[in-house]
Design a protein around this nucleic acid. Structure first.
Length: 283
DNA sequence: ACCGCTCCACTTATTACTTCA
DNA sequence: TCTGAAGTAATAAGTGGAGCG
């Protein structure tokens, strides 16, 4: 809110149909992202043309093999990462990283950060975890990659990591967090949508209740009741589902009584003008 | 059954920023 | 106007569980 943060560039899908969204999020709990994407949709790693536009190289250590240097205690390695069981089991101890052929860039036990600066190294013995802030260029590149594919296969991950001078783990974490942010954002958008639906329905309900009350009043007053036309069956056009009064003989279709389903839209319209399409968030 | 891997949900820690006295 | 503490949002990273091959 008050942050001068760079825009995340969340080109979120604001619609519910997943057909026309650049960044669709499947909120169906039964379908995981990985399933949606058929695991690894982009069959290749980054082409040679996808260069690193202005990556802030100055903020990186000169070596590109930062991940291999990690046998030394990284200034950023933490208690939890050293003590921790699971993660080090997964990525560290085995040391095999991803099972791809890229043996150079495999994840190493400490998952050392790539931007260790001299002042950070001062507290080499420190156990508090230092948090890396990705540079703008790194973030931008990750963001663009994410726009194309929100998951990475191991090769792509490694290639991206190499490109950005990050560890594969950092790239992985970034993508995980990014997916989480996207999902959260989508949830917020959905929430807004349903809130507006409820408001609209409440309003409509109020209106109908008022109308019913008026009708009841009319019915109870004999002077009006006597003049009223007999109760009529609401007639709805089966094709366009518009309510047509019995007198509207000039309607373009044949009429027969059909139950009115207020939820069924006809050409974007819903009975009584309740149009939920209009409430749908747009991207 | 076990293993290695990835993903997600939840959480924590850190950083960058704003506000205010 | 400057300054430092407090508050806040964003986000990198840790952790554990589930699912899959």
């Amino acid at each position: 809110m008050m942050m001068g943060k760079e825009d995340l560039g969340l080109s979120l899908s604001l619609g519910f149909s997943q057909n026309n969204n650049p960044l669709q999020l499947n909120l169906n709990p039964n379908s995981s992202l990985s399933n949606n994407l058929q695991r690894y949709p982009w069959n290749q790693t980054f082409g040679p043309t996808s260069d690193l536009r202005k990556i802030d190289v100055n903020s990186f250590p000169s070596t590109t093999n930062c991940e291999e240097e990690t046998g030394v205690s990284s200034p950023n390695s933490t208690i939890s990462s050293t003590i921790s069981g699971k993660r080090s089991e997964r990525e560290g101890i085995s040391g095999t990283g991803v099972g791809s052929g890229d043996d150079h860039d495999e994840i190493t036990p400490d998952r050392g950060y790539s931007r260790g600066t001299s002042d950070e190294e001062e507290d080499g013995g420190e156990t508090s975890r230092k948090k890396l802030r990705l540079s703008k260029d790194q973030s931008a590149f990750l963001e663009e990659t994410f726009k194309e594919h929100n998951t990475l296969n191991p090769k792509q991950k490694l290639a991206l990591a190499k490109k950005l001078n990050l560890t594969a783990r950092q790239v992985e974490v970034w993508f995980q967090n990014r997916r989480a942010r996207t999902k959260l954002k989508q949830t917020e958008v959905d929430c807004e949508y349903w809130k507006r639906c409820v408001e609209k329905l409440t309003e409509e309900n109020r209106r109908l209740q008022k109308e019913a009350m008026e009708l009841r009043t009319l019915k109870l007053s004999p002077q009006f009741y006597g003049q009223m036309t007999p109760p009529t069956t609401l007639i709805m056009c089966p094709s366009c589902e518009r309510v047509a009064g019995p007198s509207s003989s000039n309607h373009h279709h044949n009429h027969r009584p059909v139950s009115i389903n207020p939820w069924v839209a006809c050409a974007g319209q819903v009975a009584h003008g309740l149009n939920f399409e209009a409430l749908r968030p747009r991207s």
